[in-house]
Computed example of a mutant assay.
Amino acid sequence: MRDPLSKKITEIQPSGIRKFFDIVSDMKDAISLGVGEPDFDTPWHIREEGIYSLEKGRTIYTSNSGLKELRKEVCNYLHRRFQLNYEYESEIMITVGGSEAIDVAFRAMLDPGDEVLIPQPSYVSYVPCALLANGTPVIINLLEKDEFRLTKQQILDHITDKTKLLVLPFPNNPTGSIMTYEDLKEIVDVIIEKDLYVISDEIYSELTYGREHVSIASFPGMRERTVVINGFSKSYAMTGWRLGYAAGPAKIIKQMLKIHQFAIMCAPTTSQYAAIEALKNGDSDVAMMRESYDERRRFLVKALREIGMDCFEPFGAFYVFPSIKKFGMTSDDFANKLLQDEKLAVVPGTAFGDGGEGFLRISYAYSIESLKIALGRLENFINKL
């Protein structure tokens, strides 16, 4: 029989994160510190608004770009929090999670042979989405000595005459690194000079600690060449609601919307009504969760250092990225042996690109009580090593 499968699809590797989730789900008494998901319930007033929308029978399609009121609230939020100004009618589209927005942005902007600069370690979807859009991923390996921040020289070292897009994945999953105003200012000139466009994934923008998030789209000359990706999963603990959005130049959003129109139609109606409530009245919920994450962050970094693991201090998202190089094991071997010996799951750094070798991603989207139990198992494992 003729092979029914696309060669492009079969050559793309599945997510390295999911493998550990699948093992843990079948392992009795296992603890996972691998989930990139808030451990909080969606705040009640947000859930209540979703329930109310169902009770009122609001179960039909919305416009392809999303509810008008939601797009207006997204504009209000982006202006209020990050000094970004967009037109709700033509520069905002609501998507099925931030992941769909990333996929659609690549497909709308890339032609075969166009190169995409992708800093790694970073979220697992960028490379596959670039490939599926017929782009050519060009990896920039971020360095621990730079606290995994992207530098101007790294961009210059990887640009060719085929480079079109730069992915800016900050605050970063898995490292927890951020880009400050000064960091971004350094790279803006080269982006404009080399005529690049930017996909700025800001899904963790509300989860920074002691330092305010800055969007590259707020710099002069960058709004017209940046698509900002954001959503509700991390900030409002709404992962299962599957809702995100893209903000960008009308010319780009128009073509992204075309793809979304044919592939998706519209984001879930119930989720959109809940998201309106989140943006209008959810600031205190975000602040509460951020304060809790910050407490766990400080606790975990200190505890890891005390048991002998080298770990730079992350200022964003809800992950730490400790080094295991001193133990003479690969990230995959360390994570597998830790799981088998101590029933503790963490994610090997290589799940986020080859630049993650020698590191682990550990999530602190768990209670401190759970973290203490997990750290006891980790310390026992390290002592045996």
Rank of each mutant, 00 (worst) to 15 (best):
L257D: 00
A237K: 07
L184N: 01
I229G: 01
M222G: 09
F219M: 10
W241L: 02
N230D: 11
G221V: 11
M179V: 11
T208G: 06
A246Q: 02
D189Q: 02
G244E: 01
E206H: 15
I229F: 02
E206D: 13
K258C: 03
P249H: 14
A247D: 01
V228A: 01
T175P: 12
S200C: 12
I178C: 15
K185F: 01
F232K: 11
P171W: 11
H260P: 05
H213M: 12
L257F: 00
K194T: 02
A263E: 12
W241T: 00
G240W: 10
E212F: 11
I252W: 15
I252V: 07
H213I: 06
Y181A: 02
P249T: 13
A217E: 03
P174G: 12
R223L: 13
A263W: 14
I216G: 00
G244W: 00
I229S: 03
I259A: 04
L196F: 03
V190F: 02
V188E: 00
I187W: 09
I252G: 01
R242Y: 05
I229Y: 02
K194L: 01
Q261W: 10
E186A: 12
F262G: 10
L168R: 04
P220V: 15
G248T: 05
Q261T: 14
F219V: 12
M265P: 06
G248E: 05
R225M: 08
I252N: 02
I264G: 09
T226D: 00
I216N: 03
T208A: 08
I191T: 05
M222L: 11
H213G: 11
K251L: 07
H213Q: 10
V214Y: 08
T175E: 09
N173L: 15
H260E: 07
A246C: 04
P169M: 04
A250W: 07
G240D: 10
V214C: 13
I229L: 05
R242H: 06
S218N: 09
E182K: 14
Y209E: 05
M265Y: 12
L184Y: 01
N172C: 08
I259E: 10
R223K: 15
S233E: 09
H260D: 06
K258N: 07
Y197P: 01
N172Q: 13
I259Q: 05
K194S: 08
I191F: 07
L168H: 04
P220W: 10
E206A: 13
V227R: 12
Y197E: 12
Y204R: 06
I229V: 13
F219N: 15
V198N: 02
V167D: 04
E182N: 15
E206S: 09
